[in-house]
Amino acid sequence: MSPQFVQYLLTGLTVGAIYALVALGFSIIFNASHVINFAQGEFVMIGGMATVSLVAVGLPYLLAIPLAIATAALVGLALEKFAVEPARDASVVTLIIITIGASMFLRGLAMLVWDKNLHALKPITGDKPIAIAGATILPQSVWVLGVTLAIVVALSWFFGRTLLGKAMLATSHNRLAAQLVGINVRMVLFLSFGLSAALGAIAGILIAPITTTSYDVGVMLGLKGFAAAILGGLGSGIGAVIGGLVLGIVETMSAGYLSSAYKDAIAFVIILVVLFFLPSGLFGKRGGERV
């Protein structure tokens, strides 16, 4: 492996890990409600911006980060309560418009509460590059990869071992049946928004030291996260992670070996090709449609 290739791979993994976290957020909400939450990117923004403003008033990271995640989770819960819940019987397109409206609302609000400027966060542990096989990686990227891994492990434990997680999973498989066995489906829906908002916020905090953050940082990350979730197969946790990583690696490899101007276009072409052959993404549920 040439050092160049290693560099592209490391970069791709870091970028992909962030996409994966955003994609997981999409998947969790989709599982609970069959809603695609286009405001997912705004949770990323809220995580980053809230941390910036909390650090600015003098809080240490140890306090600022949990508070920022909690803020995002609260916004997620409020979004479910006041925008999604009242329209839960509406059509898919209507719900898409509602979440798009919510993302604009949150972005506009962030612009007022904070500002329009870009902000940087200090890396959690310094910014001296670490050399690996001729390539370099920032300590913050190691954090990104490590935390993403930890979250994936924690989520699989949560969905596989805890009662609440199992209830959420059951709801995603069959809502009616879940209701019949006594699962509070509405509560599951409510909590799924909080959980995925928290995930988004973590992504936003992790990436802010690498990329800077601002009120509109969520637009692009939301879009890429959605693409990753679709590529992996909606509703599949492992799909979201693989989708994110693949998307990140494809982008950086395209930028490195083909054309940096067309790297995003190349990524989307690949997604389209995958969908033509696997219409439900890499790990999506297959199955017939009900008549």
């Binding site: 990436i207 990329t211 692009m220 990350l221 950086t252 490899m253 930028a255």
Partner: peptide, 15 residues
């Protein structure tokens, strides 16, 4: 070239 909203340009710079 890099895109608006890109989070990392090490690939281009490595090139």
């Amino acid at each position: 070239t890099y895109g608006a909203g890109d989070t990392d340009m090490t690939a281009q710079l490595t090139k």
